[in-house]
Design a protein around this nucleic acid. Structure first.
Lengths: 129, 129
DNA sequence: GCCACAAGCAACCTTATGGTTGCCTTTTGA
DNA sequence: TCAAAAGGCAACCATAAGGTTGCTTGTGGC
């Protein structure tokens, strides 16, 4: 897969102040991708509501197999959204809110930039009318 | 273990006060999934920085084919993140910030719930020491 | 020491996804 | 009026993703 570099060609929509979003887009995309599945979203919701749970406990809240849950947890872990701790013969999973904060901040930036762009567009339209 | 069962009267993580997240999880997941790809994230960044662009213009900012860009735009559109307007022989795409706001709000909720859960856990731990 | 429970590993299957190419339709403008 | 630009449609390909089953390993309790 192409690495999606930060400097776009100058033709067309030049990167007029492209937000820092694009720079770390791979990490960020992996976070969004991890949240982009109903089952994982549910697991996150369960974890964020409860604290730390074992795989068996988490599996009980779903209707898929334990292995399925494990795979989802690994996806979430790889995106840095959850972390695990071994305790005895079980492994407890809990939320790691850092990346969630990061993702939230990105969405804030997008929204803000968009507002700026919109107002510029509007000003331009009014000026040329 | 689930710490102090203030609201959760059961063994596992039953739907103990699951946030409203889960209800509309499918729509929400599709939004996150749409953002969960570096190329689409870049397209969103370009759109949010610039206003409205044609497919050809957007393609010029990437290194994939026009058809590839079209597919990505359709994914974004299906998630409600962008919308299009036909103008002459070209089709202009622009951001639709509603769903982005929604996603941001969800992440806020997750973060908040998690804080609450954490403080409960902490209180419990301190009480039993 | 032994049994049962929690989890890990690995193979496998099916479908979705990201990307391509080739060709057709619509619109523009000289 | 007709060539070229913008885009749509459809087929195709490779690989990743979601899920399963079966078996092995590790731990705890009696």
């Amino acid at each position: 897969m192409p690495a999606c570099d930060t400097t776009a060609p100058d033709t067309g929509p030049r990167n007029a102040g492209l937000p820092a979003i694009v720079r770390s887009s791979d990490v960020l995309a992996s976070v969004f991708a991890a949240l982009g599945d109903p089952m994982r979203l549910k697991l996150v919701a369960v974890l964020c509501a409860g604290g730390a749970f074992s795989i068996a406990q988490l599996t009980a809240t779903t209707d898929i197999s334990r292995q399925g849950v494990t795979k989802h947890l690994q996806v979430l872990a790889q995106a840095g959204l959850v972390s695990d701790v071994k305790r005895g013969r079980e492994r407890l999973w809990q939320l790691e809110p850092g990346q969630i904060e990061e993702a939230k901040r990105t969405l804030e930036i997008i929204g803000r930039e968009w507002d700026v762009a919109l107002s510029k567009l509007k000003a331009f339209a009014e000026a040329t009318l």
